[in-house]
Design a protein around this nucleic acid. Sequence first.
DNA 1: GCATTAACCACAG
DNA 2: CTGTGGTTAATGC
Length: 226
Amino acid sequence: MSKGICYYCQNKSKAAGKLGNKELEKLGHSCNQVIFHKGDKIMIQNSLSYNIVFVKEGLVKVHVLGPEREQIINILKGPCYLGIPTTIGAKINKYSATAISETKVCFIGFDIFKEFVLQNGEFAYEIIIELSKNVLFNIKKCINQIQKQGPGKIAEALLYFSEEIFDNEVFDLPLTRNELGDLTCTSRETTSRILTDFSQNGIIKVNKKKISILNKKKLEKISETG
DNA sequence: GCATTAACCACAG
DNA sequence: CTGTGGTTAATGC
């Protein structure tokens, strides 16, 4: 174990893959792995942020308590970084993160992270790529939510879970209807209605949390046309 | 006006 | 926690 947990880690980020053995060893000494269970808070809005948070594996809900209601920003699947913007860009966390499945998380000291960024260009470049993708994702999501109407937003969300998170036409929705509403900027009631509507039209099959996408073409169509 | 959309309320499983 | 029905408000023909 002398080389530390990061050296042997199988879920390294792309950026960490660019680190040399010495650097990985160093990272191991400044990295702390924690296992979170469903519902555990990983990061809390308005608390001080000292660490870069890396999700090794598991599903995480990123959410913000707005003036009116709770807003789910996105659902992330490890391996991915989680708190870079809020750690670098602000003193306090601008959002919360909650595990929605069993999740392995690494907290990385900000100083060592900064050191790698300054000294290892390839590491920094991978970080920039990940951040850039996040920005593009958020722009897309913003447009979707402002311009699409209910069914389009729900279709979008279902496709996201199917393609990005579970890579399967059949999956267990890891959110309640209420949370799906928080994610898609619709009310719990409309979410529920749209799901039964999709189901009646043979587009999906719903059984409690279990969703089966039966007619993906149609779902994509709805997602595109809003 | 009339239709559509969706939020809010309420109530029942 | 969910599903549905009624009501209401906003928006667009």
